[in-house]
Every structure is written in C-alpha cells, then in structure tokens.
C-alpha cells in the first residue's frame, strides 16, 4: 500500500490552500498531521479522499492516479471534520446503510465494530440523540468499517473522554498493525506523539517537515 503525492496544489477563490505538496506514505504507519487552524490539514485529507480536485499535481494510490484512473481511492475510510450521519436512524442503521454502498458486512460484524468503539449500548439509539463523544466514536467506526487500506482521521478524539481516548488509540494502533496507512490530524500534541510514527508539519499550505 502506497500513496504518492507530487506537487499537490489547490487554489480556491484566489488563495493557494495547498502549495506544491510532495509526500510518500506507506502502509503500516500512522502519519500525524500537525499545524494551526487553516494550515491545510483538512484540505490535504479531502484531496487524498478524492473529495477535492487538485489544481496542479497528482495523487497516486497504489500506482493508480486519482481522478484519472480512479475517481476515489478504492479502499478508504474517512472521518473529516464533524462526523455526519442521518439523525433519524440509529448508529447501527447508519453504519449498515453506509456499508450497503460498497461492502458486504453481516449485522454481527457491524455489532463488533460498535463494540470496538464502545457504542454497543447505544446501538439502537438515534444518531440525532447521540452526545458529541458518541458521534465521534461512530465517526471512527464508519472510518474503519470494512478494514479500509487508507484511513483518514481528522481530530478523532475530539469530545471523547479519557477512557474513550484509550479505546480509540487501541483501535487506531490495531489498524496500523494490520498494514493500513493511517493519517491523523490532531490538535493534542501529546496524543499525536503517542500515536504517530511520523509527523507531518504543515504551515500555510506547505509541508515543512
């Protein structure tokens, strides 16, 4: 598993939000993206997920060029910005509906997933009635559902309590050990150092280290 990013530039409304980014990302590693608000972390993740068309440059995933050979990465899970699900459906139903698009998961597998992120007891509760922390956990569950090869997590531990943070950490590390490419953006520097194998520092749309 390999992601190559060459000269990725994105201009929006006259602003260059990503400036010629070059990165090589490999499976079995957690990449932590650090930077201030508005430095381009989320934009980089959205670009890798195929949700934004680059102005210049290219993203190559396992030898396939994004937006030319493939329109979206073939196996990806994302939690970018706020976790968004359908409020009138339960956590279980939401996952089941998403899984029905491109995966074949049994109900038991979805239950296991909910257990992994600590949402078993809230399985049948409507998403609209979830607390912020529960929403975040469901977002992580959706991102790792079906064991995708690439996992993008933007602030995955936001609003999650201490015990939950440890639970999420174990989930993310477990996925890393299975050879996934995991990219995590997180404001908490300590957490980032605990999780990430490599840190990518972004400043004003550029990678500085």
């Amino acid at each position: 598993m390999r992601i190559e990013i060459h000269g990725l530039t994105k201009r929006m409304k006259g602003n260059e939000v990503l400036k010629g980014i070059d990165l090589q990302l490999e499976g079995g590693k957690i990449y932590g993206v650090q930077g201030k608000n508005g430095c381009g972390k989320t934009m980089l993740m959205r670009s890798i997920a195929g949700l934004i068309l680059p102005t210049e440059g290219e993203i190559v995933i396992n030898g396939k060029k994004l937006h030319r050979d493939i329109s979206v990465p073939e196996s990806i899970g994302i939690l970018i910005e706020n976790p968004s699900f359908l409020g009138e459906y339960s956590g279980f139903e939401n996952l089941k509906m998403l899984a029905s698009i491109n995966l074949s998961l049994a109900d038991e597998e979805i239950d296991e997933l909910l257990e992994q992120v600590g949402l078993s007891e809230q399985r049948d509760k409507k998403f609209g009635k979830y607390s912020l922390g529960m929403k975040q956990r469901l977002g992580v569950a959706a991102a790792i559902m079906g064991n995708p090869e690439i996992i993008l997590l933007d602030e995955p531990i936001n609003a999650i309590d201490g015990e939950g943070v440890e639970q999420m950490r174990q989930v993310i590390l477990g996925m890393r050990d299975e050879g996934r490419i995991i990219i995590v953006a997180c404001h908490d520097k300590e957490e980032m150092e605990l999780l990430a194998d490599e840190i990518i520092v972004m400043v004003e749309g550029e990678v500085r280290g």
Binding site: R46, G50, V72, I80, E81, S84, L98
Partner: peptide
C-alpha cells in the same frame, strides 16, 4: 457533510 461519507465510497 454526510455527502463525504457517500462520495468517498
């Protein structure tokens, strides 16, 4: 933002 969940799949 629900569209993100769909369009990445």
């Amino acid at each position: 933002g629900y569209m993100k969940n769909l369009c990445c799949r």
